[in-house]
Design a protein around this nucleic acid. Structure first.
Lengths: 159, 159
DNA sequence: CATAAATATTTCAAATTTGAATTATTTAAG
DNA sequence: CTTAAATAATTCAAATTTGAAATATTTATG
């Protein structure tokens, strides 16, 4: 995208970064998605399984926040995982509005079976960058993501 | 995501980077999307307009490649932009299979009217990173994206 | 205790996205 | 020239995603 010196230095820098960030994330996502499909899961299903596998049972809303998807969608995702017998819903004793989702034995087994392989796949894809570069990219992406989440764009500082 | 030392150092590094990259891109995208909606456009519509505005007329297929969306989808996007009178289809003289899409006068006008503002919005959102950090993030994301596009994950180097 | 506000999930309709099949055209090979 | 393969765009059905409205429950206020 030839945007050099078109909108001022700051804007050009930001636009250039955003295009590259979006391209990298989309392309990386398409590759990992192929891998995930080969396990018979969709991307959001895998994401939920990963969350639950690593962090244990949590409410639907928590899954939404972590996976950055809408509530309506997560309900369907959990529905489908439940149909496959991979997760189950538990009504929380303390607050009956919240529904805890947790892996079933089958879900645990699948998680263990595929996540190791997926991790190696991700490592292979990422290996076009050195580990040092990966750390640096991660650090900057984290800083950007966290800052945005905590409401920074409201700071309308007019340059 | 607590994945530290779970899948080996390389895999942990890669997984950690990928999570952060995906989060940053999603969050940034959600913010820019709100801005784009305020112009009465969808994200892919805006992307196509941006491509055409900056680079001039091009075939549908070229738009697909640049925006990383499927062909069927881009046909619909161009249909809708055409309905709004923002772009027009031209049958190429040399190859009548290809259909060139170009901005109409109205499309040009809209592009000029909104892109400047959008550029400033992106700059404001990105300003949680210094310009130096933005350049570095862009450089690494570009390297990652380009390497992946050119078929690197086929290199099955088993560590 | 009763009411109002807030929170968690689900349901539903609309919009988006993909991938496969189809149509039209061009290029290559015999 | 004719046929086969390749390419460009479109159409279509299925799956995904979102956001708004509905339901159920809890918390706060009087």
């Amino acid at each position: 995208m030839k945007t050099t010196k078109q909108y001022g230095k700051k804007a050009d820098t930001a636009l250039s970064m955003w295009v590259k960030l979006a391209r990298a994330a989309t392309t990386f996502g398409q590759l990992t998605n192929e891998n995930i499909r080969s396990f018979g899961l969709t991307q959001p299903q895998f994401g939920a399984l990963e969350c639950l596998g690593h962090l244990g049972a949590m409410p639907i809303g928590e899954l939404c926040k972590r996976q950055l998807v809408s509530g309506g969608n997560m309900t369907v995702v959990v529905d489908n995982l439940e149909k496959e017998g991979l997760v189950e819903r538990l009504h929380s004793k303390e607050d009956r509005r919240t529904i805890l989702v947790q892996l079933t034995a089958k879900g645990q087994k699948l998680f263990k079976a595929i996540f190791e392989e997926h991790a190696q796949f991700v490592a292979r894809v990422a290996s076009v960058l050195t580990e040092k570069e990966q750390n640096e990219l991660g650090r900057l992406a984290k800083k950007l993501g966290i800052s945005l989440k905590s409401g920074c764009p409201k700071n309308f500082e007019e340059d």
